[in-house]
Amino acid sequence: MSTETIEKKDTQVEKKPSEPLLSKRRRKFIADPLSDDNPITVQVLGICSALAVTTQMKPTFVMAVAVLAVIVFSNLIISAMRNLIPSRIRIIVQLAVVASLVILVDQVLRAYLYDVSKMLSVFVGLIITNCIIMGRLEAFAMGNKPYDSVLDGLGSGFGYAWIILAVAFFRELLGSGAVFGYEVFAAIGWEDFPTNGLMVTPVGAFMVLGLIVWAQRAKTGYVEK
């Protein structure tokens, strides 16, 4: 793969009538990872953080936003310089970009959301090793244009976000009787709602996640080969 052929291809694409901003092909970048190709439930990536940070909705939400930001911007940056990156050190380059973005997110959280940043503790730093991000960079951003890569990042980011938020919703509701810290059961007059301690532990996350995977695969008919 020499530089010349890639450049030629790029100019050819540009000559065609420009594709609509959200063409059918591009909508698939966002829609696929939400369900049919979900990074957590289908590709089974990023499980570690999905289990660790999902005891409550608030830190989970911040984590979801953090991962979304990192995945979108790293996709954009890597895609923008994909023709400059020497293929021999591409993984290190990807890692450097992801790590820098994650540290930025961590610094911002520490300055503006100190309590949440303490709750997430090491898991913000561990976004660096989240396989979803490196996976998208290697599989998509290295070979596609920046705009498409951003859409792809948004798709995977939201696919990750809705799953961990769903897990956190059930864990906080059943484990602490609350949603976003708001005591739901106390509010509707069920003061002595028996909270389930299992839901607070990672075991609860495994069970909720397993049920979501089950429900989703029953619906989409996906079977692992």
């Binding site: 293929s87 021999r88 380059v93």
Partner: peptide, 12 residues
């Protein structure tokens, strides 16, 4: 060119 050692080191 993109694979030469000098380019790789410079890029890094």
């Amino acid at each position: 060119m993109r694979q030469s050692n000098a380019y790789v080191i410079g890029f890094a």
